[in-house]
Amino acid sequence: MRVGRGLSRSSSRPLARSSVPWLYLAPALVVLGGLLLYPVYQLGLISFFQYTQAQVSGGQPTTFEGLANYREIFSDSQFWQVLLATVLFAAACVVSTLSVGCALAVLLTRVRALPRLALMLAALGAWATPAVTGSTVWLLLFDPDFGPVNRVLGLGDHSWTYGRLSAFLLVLLEVVWCSFPFVMVTVYAGIRAVPAEVLEAASLDGASQLRVWRSVLAPMLRPILVVVTIQSVIWDFKVFTQIYVMTNGGGIAGQNLTLNVYAYQQAFASSQYSLGSAIGIVMLLILLAVTLVYLRLLRRQGEEL
């Protein structure tokens, strides 16, 4: 991912005037500034105020609370529990999604057109399914009474959503199902872009599959792997619909809450908008830290944005 810098280096060409990039960026900046940055600013603001439904609808005045909302969530043991669950769950999702996606991408390159088309279409189908629907279908498949999965596995009326781990596992399966296609298609496209001869030469040289992958493919695919990893981290950390629908808003006694759902429940179910906002801000900061650390590691290894 190196930047084409030939044009911009010389200043004589019309495209290279320094105002031009800003002109091109203007529409994006206006939209993002107005509809993303400003709401985030509002979110941060709300997190410092006492802001419940009564304040929102003008029944009571808003009052500045300083860091009280943050103090409240940090002193709540449930918050830490949810945070830990979120991190572990997101990590499990990222690792599973990436490994399934990459493995299947490699598989795609090894098969002829018909099986490739079949797998591709199935994956695109999973990708196209709305999250709400995907979650419902998976619930129906694993339903203790009406689902075929328990019947096939001979589990009787075992309830998948009762245990904390099994509920998380069920959600994980659904998340992997609907997010591996992105990884698979992207990595597959990346492998295809690698000249076939290079691969064949390597494998003919007697290098094992693993070695081919490690010393030939991985370096060439690195930029694409960076992209899918960052995207997976971002998406999986924010999994919302699946948890919300499949564990009915956070599971038995809130055991399957993740930060995003927890924030939503605080904000909308309990009308504690300020607490929900504070959790949202904390989440944003965590994601930011993770990504920046990751980017820094990359840069140290010589990658450039």
Binding site: L32, L36, Y38, V56, L287, L288
Partner: peptide, 17 residues
């Protein structure tokens, strides 16, 4: 970073906007 913003949490400010 903009992609990391939790959409659900932004519903309130966006609503007012």
């Amino acid at each position: 970073v903009a992609q990391m913003v939790p959409v659900e949490a932004l519903t309130i400010p966006l609503f007012f906007q």
